[in-house]
């Protein structure tokens, strides 16, 4: 079972937006820079996140993206499934193979393990870590 880069970077980008937004729109350029990803890639990810309602785009000069719901209402499992598809591929669950019960049990067990995790848990964890000294690059204008 593998998670693709889309799932991994998508969650990082969403958490980055949530962490830096505080209600104000954040530009994709800033998210891309902080996550060390290309803007094109971030745009693809945000299209998926916007369609699924996890982010909203705000137009205008001060425009950008904000969260589409409060962070405590955004389940990490839902975000991951929006980016990656279901935890266990649908054709594994719908086939008539004799091993099908295993995949159903696995999907159920994993969903249970992740069921209560929200974006707010990630933000809380980030706030609890010590603030780092800004690197020299942060001062370059």
């Amino acid at each position: 079972m593998k998670i693709s880069t889309k799932g991994r970077y998508g969650l990082e980008a969403l958490a980055d937006l949530a962490f830096h937004s505080e209600g104000e729109p954040v530009s994709l350029r800033e998210v891309a820079r902080r996550c060390s990803l290309s803007q094109t890639y971030i745009l693809q990810i945000f299209l998926i996140l916007r369609r699924a309602g996890f982010v909203k785009s705000i137009r205008g000069v001060q425009g950008g993206y904000v969260l589409g719901a409060p962070p405590e209402g955004i389940l990490l499992l839902d975000v991951l499934e929006a980016l990656e598809g279901p935890l266990v591929p649908e054709d594994f669950l719908s086939g008539d193979g004799q091993e099908r019960g295993f995949w159903e049990g696995l999907a159920c067990h994993m969903k249970e393990a992740l069921s209560s995790l929200t974006l707010e848990d990630v933000l809380e964890c980030c706030r609890s870590l010590p603030v780092r000294e800004p690197g020299r690059m942060d001062f370059v204008i």
Binding site: E12, A15, D16, H109, A113, L114, L117, V122, C125, L129
Partner: peptide, 16 residues
Amino acid sequence: IQQCLKGLLWDRMNRA
């Protein structure tokens, strides 16, 4: 963010 996602999500998924 990467540290927190690892501890909260990825490691937990792997364990599950």
